[in-house]
């Protein structure tokens, strides 16, 4: 059971309250926590999944959205394989902050990092950001895009599984290439 072929680090970022922690909890523990404090600094969950019969271990780092934890959260970008940037589809300000987050990602993350834009809380009635607006933004910035609901478990599994599959493909390609190079 400890046998895994791949280990990927995934880091979630985005404004406080958009549902990052809920997404992680939903995925790793299968639950939607009723009430919980805001994340402080960084938190971390682990889940091993299977992609094409290969075991993939996902280290999921959940970061605090507040300004005052920036110095610690930024330091986790660098080692990330994938960055999930989350906003709340029912809260325009969280969407408006995306460029700021991107700037930070540019500055601190590796440029090879896989980036995914996630609009969370699609179960809510009071949507403020239409799907296509998010989609557009993602496209313009070379990101994958998905809308989720941590509450209704919608697209959460898929989000992480797609990431695992994508990362695996990338690294197998690299593996393959380096083998070719060796030849």
């Amino acid at each position: 059971m400890e046998d895994y072929k791949f280990l990927f680090k995934v880091v979630l970022v985005g404004n406080a309250g958009v549902g990052k922690t809920c997404l992680v909890r939903r995925f790793t523990q299968g639950l939607f926590p009723p009430g919980q404090g805001a994340t402080i600094g960084v938190d971390f969950m682990i889940k091993t999944v299977e992609v094409e019969n290969e075991k993939v271990k996902l280290q999921i780092w959940d970061t605090a959205g507040q300004e005052r934890f920036r110095s610690i959260t930024q330091s986790y970008y660098r080692s990330a394989h994938a960055l999930i940037l989350v906003y709340d589809i029912s809260c325009q300000p969280t969407f408006d902050c995306l460029p700021d987050w991107l700037r930070e990602i540019e500055e601190y993350a590796s440029n090879k990092v896989l980036r995914i834009l996630v609009g969370n809380k699609i179960d809510r009635e009071d949507r403020e950001i239409p799907t296509h607006v998010g989609e557009d933004f993602a496209q313009r910035h070379g990101m994958y895009f998905l809308e989720t609901s941590a509450k209704e478990a919608e697209n959460v599994e898929r989000l992480f599984m797609e990431i695992a599959a994508e990362l695996m493909e990338v690294s197998e390609n690299i593996l393959f290439k380096s083998i070719l190079l060796l030849w």
Partner: peptide, 17 residues
């Protein structure tokens, strides 16, 4: 020690209730 640095740093910020 990469993992340990990351994890221990995270633990320094623990927000256990």
């Amino acid at each position: 020690y990469d993992f340990f640095v990351s994890k221990y740093s995270a633990m320094c910020h623990s927000n256990n209730d």
